[in-house]
Design a binder for these strands. Structure first.
Lengths: 182, 182
DNA sequence: TAAACCTGTTGAATATATTGAACAGGTAAG
DNA sequence: CTTACCTGTTCAATATATTCAACAGGTTTA
């Protein structure tokens, strides 16, 4: 995946109605620097890129999380959520292409006895969710808790974690994860 | 907002169980370079930072947007979700410190007739949600749709957007936004 | 007891980014 | 027309990042 720093900087600068010199002045760098970066004739250090972006202002994170313009699908009827796994746990995903999005939102349904398994999950992300119905046992690191309707959780996905239903009721959850984990 | 490139790179590298030399080899740079970057004794060009991250692999966007420190509180009882606004629209937020998190998860309740207002919202983020109950009119850019229970939405928050209930039923939504918008 | 192989760090040479000043073109006012 | 002030680009000088090779410490193998 290529990332065109120059083109992106130019687009952002123009979108904010700034000239190279004006931006350079606000950022405390030379106009030549801005020009060369925009032409991709130099690859700025993250330090100087940060200085330039401070003149806009925009965070490095926003700069690199590219917003693609084309009209994307915004609305999803309940029946056309993408069902990802359909065993004891059913994940209905909002949107089709998780790798292109910052956020993975799932409407989850656990059958009674459903369990993500003994070997704990781990991935580089953050996730959280709200329980709508039923009772869910959530284990994160060395912490464990049983959550009911309206209760919620939030943790760093690097910590080993596990979900398991308790009781005989179907359990329903809406969860979110950034970046998407599958 | 400070961003500690060195510390972040070191944390990520160690999390992936790589030595400086191993990462340097995969990335096609010198181990000295990795060492100096991690000590913040040099500020890498985005080109070389990208090369280094390719050796992990990880995108620039992920590098700059992901959270660094693990979080302490994981579980939230329904009654200790943080209620953010309590007029016609009630936002119950999972977690207390949105600016320290990658993800803002809200359990929202709209009273009949509730509306986020004529002046459309805009912010640099991505957001989505699932409707649990009631009917919600969602406007994004030039698109508009009425969603019911189980329906969902997802869009880039830079597009002007607005939420409005229709009908006499209370409307309930679980939404997520990255990065948090308030 | 090395000797061999890791780890991360450092110094001097080299490649690259950044600067300040000059350049070329466009527009507006006198 | 000239003068002034924009725009973005380019050149040579300089500051900075990156490399190669050596160093110091730790762990394993013989």
């Amino acid at each position: 995946m290529e990332f065109d720093v120059g083109a992106r900087l130019r687009a952002i600068r123009e979108m904010h109605g700034l000239s190279q010199r004006e931006l350079a002045k606000r950022a405390g760098v030379s106009n030549a620097s801005v020009s060369l970066i925009e032409q991709n004739r130099s690859s700025p250090s993250v330090g100087s890129l940060k200085k330039v972006l401070d003149g806009i202002p925009m965070s490095l994170a926003d700069f690199f999380s590219m917003e693609q313009a084309p009209r994307e699908q915004v609305f999803f009827r309940a029946e056309d959520l993408t069902v990802i796994s359909d065993g004891a746990i059913r994940y209905a995903q909002v949107g089709r292409d998780p790798e292109a999005r910052a956020l993975q939102i799932l409407h989850e349904q656990y059958q009674p006895g459903a369990d993500t398994g003994q070997n704990m999950l781990r991935h580089a992300a953050e996730e959280g969710g709200v329980v709508l119905r039923g009772r869910l046992e959530v284990t994160v690191g060395d912490q464990r808790r049983i959550l009911g309707p309206g209760d919620a959780y939030y943790f760093n996905s690097r910590l080993p974690h596990r979900f398991r239903t308790v009781g005989e009721e179907i359990c329903e959850v809406v969860s979110a994860c950034t970046p998407p984990s599958f």
